[in-house]
Design a protein around this nucleic acid. Structure first.
Lengths: 202, 202
DNA sequence: TGTTTATGACTGAACGTTCGGTCAAAAGTA
DNA sequence: TACTTTTGACCGAACGTTCAGTCATAAACA
């Protein structure tokens, strides 16, 4: 249809993105199995067959969507890796987390669905753990630096708190007064990481 | 006539429970839409038709399962209602929560799936909120008693922490060293509810 | 003309659901 | 006791429907 090979590739890229965006939204809202190819094509304004010019199967589509989405997510987490996190960087990290979740609600909805029901995408949990490991390691080091005697356990507690809050944000975004709650979670984090002897001045 | 009505009813009750147990497990593991009636009947050792002597539809089955399961869950939460929670009762409450989750893993897996994807069971989230409201109210009062200046916000933070931990417990039960982590969560709760001026002796 | 995107009617498999019918067991009858 | 009647749990083939995926064809460029 278009002209040069360059333009061609560009066009394919855009079409693929359109399909993936629509599919992600429908998968997130209704679930993978409950969403039909026809629904996707209807909403994307394309034909059924075209899907299979871009993806080899519905399953493949899901995998490409999750792969792309969490690459998108994690490329935003480039705190300088060399040193251990400062307090400011930790605050930034938490705020970034909430910002990213708020801007990719559909993905995070799908994320929880795939976490809870691993049968839908076999390797999702493992892949995700792998991707998030460097970040968790930084938090781990941050906890050690802050005098934690059980950084593993404290990391778990912190993760629970943040993941729980994200779950609320995703499940009930209109109940969640996000500005205030972000601050509350941040405060709670500092309460949890500070050693009992020396409470933080923050 | 044939069997006595008493015997009959008892038998029906048991059969229904068998079907519901099997279905709950499969729904939890594989998801509602991905689980077929045939799978359920195969695992329960019954015929396809029998399902429809006990339930009017697959959807109805899901609704009866969730209704029964969370009645089961909440009947165990009978702390004496009159007064405000003591510290000991609060500790008991958290420990009970984890115990109940550990003993009903399948339900809680399904719970998260239905929370994240409300399309599967329309009224689930609302029904669940209604059931859990009295408990949350008790915690709310407990937070007020403990000097919280923002019990609403603190309740949210506490809920996030506990729900996040439960999510971990459900998603990765073998990674979660449950004994230790329960204690950690409990400690974290007390850190969060204590006023900054007067840290708890616990 | 040759190449590639795009279409949508089509297919076979699998799904939830239905229904005519079977059968073990209890109650009635003698 | 032995035979008949009556019940409802139970079965599984078959139904209509929906699904993911296919393919012959057309349209739009080069």
């Amino acid at each position: 249809m278009p002209r040069s090979p360059k333009q061609l590739e560009e066009h394919r890229k855009q079409k693929k993105k359109l399909i993936m965006d629509v599919a992600l939204e429908l998968f997130a809202k209704g679930g993978f199995h409950a969403t039909s190819i026809s629904q996707i094509t209807r909403k994307a304004g394309i034909s059924k067959g075209l899907i299979y010019n871009y993806f080899s199967s519905k399953q493949d589509m899901l995998e490409e969507i999750t792969e792309t989405a969490y690459n998108e997510v994690y490329k935003n987490f480039d705190l300088d890796k060399d040193g251990v996190l400062t307090n400011e960087e930790f605050i930034f990290f938490i705020k970034e987390t909430f910002r990213i979740v708020r801007e990719n609600m559909s993905f995070w909805q799908l994320y929880f669905a795939l976490m809870v029901q691993p049968g839908i995408q076999e390797s999702f949990s493992e892949k995700y753990q792998e991707k998030s490991k460097p970040i968790l390691n930084q938090i781990y080091a941050f906890l050690q630096k802050n005098g934690s005697t059980d950084p593993e356990g404290d990391l778990f507690v912190l993760s629970s708190l943040v993941e729980g809050a994200i779950l609320y944000l995703v499940v009930a975004p209109d109940i969640f007064p996000s500005g205030k709650m972000e601050d509350k979670i941040l405060q709670a984090c500092f309460r949890l990481i500070s050693t009992p002897e020396a409470p933080p001045k923050n």
